[in-house]
Amino acid sequence: MIQLNRVNHQFAIGKKGKERIVPVLHDIDLHVKQGEIVAIVGRSGSGKSTLLNLMSGYIRPTSGEILVNGQNVTKLSEGDWANFRLSHLGFMFQSFQLIPSMTAFENAELPLVLQGVGISKRKQRVMELLEQVGIAEYAGHYPGELSGGQQQRVSVARSLMLDPPIVLADEPTGSLDSDNERQLLALIRTLNEERGTTFVLITHDDQVASTAHRILKLKDGHLLHAYAKGGSLAHEIQ
């Protein structure tokens, strides 16, 4: 489903002409299978977010190639990446990333709007998903009027709106209390089992990681270990 072949990434920081090159990821080889929940763990600065950003197309690898759903996306143009994201990927963010001037309904329907779906179909689909995540009664509320848990539900509804085969989540429970965290993880498991949605989660949290079928550990830009569910060592990469 997602395949990374010898992916390297480095940042250039500092003034132009006097940049300093900071390598972030080194020769990452990774294969996420369809219907899998994969958690990527590691300390702050280990390159977890950079890895997810590469899979999302927000940044491009310095070298190596990335294949998603069999398509080489390494050199897609910005416009093609936008279309690809819309049709293949769903996103969950730590701080939800809802547009403050739009209601929960409008935020959730955004992927449908971008895809050009008609109003009546949109309304039906949005209400269906808001109900599924238990937030339908707050459809007309603005993000500022919702709790963190409610906002994350809107964000989840938005990420699932176009029924993407892959959902990329960066610390999805990072801003949630334990109740909301439990509910979100249960939802992720249900979606994975019922729809076969593939999840790539980035987390610090053991409980979140325990939801995954596979746990990958990043250290200083190197993918170190792959653990099977339950924490037993499945495969040592280095």
Partner: peptide
Amino acid sequence: AQDIGIMKAIGAHPNS
């Protein structure tokens, strides 16, 4: 900028 960033993040085409 943030709204535009969110829209781009979930798949808004630059032309749109």
